[in-house]
Amino acid sequence: MTTTEPPSAPASGPAPAPAAAGKAALRARQVAARRPAYRAELADGTERFFEARRADCPWCGSDRLRIRLRTTDLLQHKPGRFVLDECQDCAHVFQNPRLTGEGLEFYYRDFYDGLGEQRLGGVFGTRTAAYRGRARSVAPFAAAPVSWLDVGTGHGHFCETAREVFPDTAFDGLDLSEGAELAEHSGRLAHGFRGSLPELAPGLAGRYEVVSMFHYLEHSTDPVRELAAAHRVLRPGGLLLIEVPDPQSRYARLLGRWWLPWLQPQHLNLMPAANLRRRLGELGFSVVLEQHREPHDPVDLLAACWLLLDAAAPREDAPWLPGTPPGRLRRTLRGAVFLAGAPVLLLASLLDRLAARSAGRTGLSNAYRLLARRE
């Protein structure tokens, strides 16, 4: 399981072009190889993947909860129904009931790795402009940090780009998957640590001048524990850079379950900026920068349209889906749906870019960024 950001925009769904026929055949073989194991695992249903429903907010303890959203897995289409509750006192949004460890392993499998690795690896590898902007947000407060730990680093793509901004900085990465180790071997990271930050923090105490968490906290079962661990590995005066989806974005209400950053069932906790600022203060940090326009990723309308088309089209073959694999007719119909929807996707993309110019002022920003100093 990896804890990193979701794709900026879902990959296209039409049938593969002739040049991609070899990859399509390889994927078909991989799907067929995984199908027996998935079907055996799902024979007993999905109930064991969920904890008991909790009656209080995991952020503030209030019992004044309301259902914010009911949805399904709109990207992989794995079976299960998911509920997000919102605290009426602090506005924290959280998955309830939450996935168990077994459930997290099941729903993450073949998303960032396995069947999904090549597709998402390509997405993350092309986001250099966003990575550069993240790194530059630190520059006014730390001109030349010696050491930087990127938590939830995936395959280390951010660190590779951030080195252009800070060429003398040693970038380490940490992830639950083997991606951090692979990134070290490829030279993207000086050191790649595999594991969780709270578990590894005692051995890394006081080592880093900067710790970054990009679209990481929302995946965590205990965000406050992660923040406390970050405090531990930072030197006094060190900086913690956080970027997360903004559950108070107007797009979140306008688009409902089709808003991509809900990303169910992976996102377990979504914190309003005010909540995170207060908690950082309680843990011994002072927030020195808050940004809403800069971290906004202009894909909300495009992604929502893509998800709607994907829901209407016949499914791609996947080992967890019931029934027989799709034949030529179903594959052709899927391609036809996306071909017919291409003008809508183009228009949505244009509207996204127009709205991005004022996303911070209008409350449409789908993410926010905080930079906090360890006192």
Results as ranks from 00 to 15, higher is better:
180 A>C: 11
315 R>L: 08
237 G>S: 07
356 A>P: 02
28 A>Q: 13
281 G>C: 10
288 V>I: 15
325 P>Q: 06
254 L>I: 06
252 A>F: 05
108 Y>H: 14
200 L>Q: 12
200 L>A: 14
223 P>K: 07
297 D>N: 13
180 A>I: 06
334 R>P: 08
61 G>H: 06
313 A>Y: 03
354 L>F: 07
46 T>D: 06
262 W>F: 14
40 A>G: 11
73 D>L: 03
12 S>V: 00
181 E>K: 06
312 A>L: 15
313 A>S: 11
52 A>W: 00
313 A>V: 02
114 G>A: 07
21 A>R: 03
63 D>T: 15
235 R>M: 13
166 F>R: 09
95 Q>C: 09
274 A>N: 02
300 D>G: 01
240 L>C: 00
45 G>M: 03
255 L>D: 03
155 H>K: 12
370 L>K: 09
299 V>Q: 14
369 R>Y: 09
5 E>G: 15
211 V>N: 08
371 L>N: 09
229 A>I: 11
175 D>E: 10
162 A>H: 02
330 R>G: 12
227 L>S: 10
282 E>H: 03
286 S>I: 04
79 P>E: 07
361 R>H: 11
374 R>F: 09
182 L>C: 02
342 A>E: 13
90 C>D: 12
302 L>G: 01
375 E>G: 12
117 E>C: 01
248 Q>M: 09
280 L>I: 08
163 R>G: 07
337 V>C: 13
249 S>R: 06
80 G>E: 01
342 A>H: 11
132 R>L: 15
199 E>C: 02
